[in-house]
C-alpha cells in the first residue's frame, strides 16, 4: 500500500519544552488514520506542521513522494479543534471567501457550494449572517469548507465536539464516503469509540514521542493477552480439573445452568487445544478471544496499566 503522507523524524522545540521528539508517522493512502494522544502530547503541533502553519526544527514531511511545499495547501483540508467563523459575515459569502483562499474560483465554485449546502440543509441560510446560525449549523458550514476543494488529505481535529448525535452520524458517514471517493483522512480525537468505528490505522503520541503505530487489527492483536471467553452448557466436571498446564482459569461464574469462564492461554498453546480439552465435558455455546479495546490500549500506553486489569485477573 502506498503512503500519502510520511512524517520523517520530526523534532519541534518551543522555548521551554520539546513538543515533538523525533516523531515519524506514515499515513497509508485512502485510509482513516487516527492520531491519538492525551492533551498536550504534541498532536496539534504535528497537525500544524502538516498544514505548514509552523515549520519543524528537524525532519521532513513528504506528501506523496515530494517534500511538503506551499502548493500542497490546496490538497489538504483542515478542520481545527478551535474553530470559528466571521460572525458578522454572510454564510454564503464566507464559504466563498474561504474556498477562494483554498484556490477555488469561478462559477463552478458557487455550484459546488450549492450542492453541499443542499446536502446539509443549509441553503435557506445562504444570505443570513453566521451569528444567526445555531452552533451545529456553524459546524456543518465548517465541515463543508474543509472538504469543499476535494482535497486528497483531510485533517479533522476533534471533529465531533459540539455536535448532536444525529449530526455526528451524518459527519461519520461523510468521512467514510470521502474515503471511499479516494481521500485520506487524519483524525485526531480522544473519543476511542469513534476510533474503533472509523479508523484503519492509528498512531499514538505521548509526551512528544510516538509510542505506537499500525493498523488497528494488528495493534489489538499485538496487545492481546490470549484471554478467551467461553460459555459452556452441561458442564460435568469442574473446570480447574479439566484444564492442563499452560491454561489458566481466570474467572468462572455459573448462571442459569450456563457457565461463563475466562481462560488465559500461554504462548506455547493454541485456542484449538483449549477447545479439544473442553469438548468431552461440556457443550460449547460460544467462544471468543477477548482483545483489549483501543481505549484499554490507549490508557495502558499512557499510564502504564490497563484500566480493567484488576477485574480481568480477579
Amino acid at each position: 500500500m502506498g503512503y500519502l503522507l510520511r512524517v520523517d523524524s520530526i523534532t519541534k522545540d518551543y522555548r521551554n519544552h520539546r513538543a515533538l521528539d523525533n516523531v515519524s508517522v506514515q499515513v497509508p493512502e485512502q485510509s482513516v488514520f487516527g492520531l491519538l494522544g492525551p492533551n498536550g502530547a504534541g498532536k496539534t503541533t504535528l497537525i500544524r506542521i502538516i498544514n505548514q502553519i509552523i515549520g519543524p526544527d528537524q525532519g521532513t514531511v513528504y506528501f506523496g513522494d515530494k517534500p511538503l511545499s506551499p502548493a500542497h495547501v490546496h490538497e489538504i483540508g483542515y478542520l481545527p479543534e478551535e474553530r470559528g467563523l466571521y460572525k458578522k459575515m454572510e454564510v454564503g459569502e464566507q464559504a466563498l471567501y474561504l474556498a477562494r483562499l483554498k484556490g477555488l474560483k469561478g462559477p463552478a465554485l458557487k455550484k459546488l457550494l450549492q450542492h453541499w449546502f443542499d446536502k446539509f440543509d443549509l441553503s435557506p441560510w445562504w444570505n443570513k449572517k453566521v451569528e444567526e446560525l445555531s452552533k451545529g449549523m456553524q459546524q456543518k458550514l465548517q465541515f463543508i469548507i474543509t472538504v469543499l476543494h476535494n482535497p486528497r488529505l483531510l485533517i479533522f481535529d476533534e471533529p465531533f465536539s459540539g455536535f448532536d448525535p444525529i449530526n455526528v452520524n451524518l459527519i461519520k458517514e461523510e468521512i467514510l464516503q470521502l474515503r471511499k471517493n479516494g481521500a485520506t483522512i487524519i483524525f485526531s480525537t480522544h473519543n476511542m469509540g469513534s476510533v474503533e468505528e472509523l479508523c484503519d490505522h492509528i498512531a499514538l503520541i505521548n509526551k512528544s514521542k510516538k509510542v505506537l503505530e499500525g493498523s488497528i487489527r494488528q495493534i489489538r492483536k499485538d496487545h492481546a493477552d490470549h484471554m478467551f471467553q467461553l460459555e459452556l452448557e452441561q458442564l460435568n466436571k469442574p473446570l480447574e480439573h479439566i484444564l492442563k498446564s499452560g491454561f489458566t482459569l481466570v474467572h468462572s461464574k455459573p448462571h442459569n445452568g450456563l457457565v461463563t469462564a475466562r481462560v488465559r492461554i500461554d504462548n506455547q498453546h493454541s485456542p484449538n487445544e483449549l477447545l479439544e480439552q473442553l469438548m468431552p465435558f461440556a457443550r460449547i455455546i460460544s467462544f471468543q478471544e477477548l482483545t483489549p479495546s483501543m481505549n484499554d490500549i490507549f490508557i495502558k500506553q499512557v499510564t502504564g496499566k490497563y484500566p480493567s486489569e484488576d477485574t480481568k485477573n480477579g
Binding site: Y78, L79, Y86, L98
Partner: peptide, 18 residues
Amino acid sequence: LEEKTNRIVEIIVSSVRP
C-alpha cells in the same frame, strides 16, 4: 483581534501564510 478571538485564524493560516 477579531480573527484571533473568534478562532477563524487557524482555518485561514492553513490556506495562506500569516
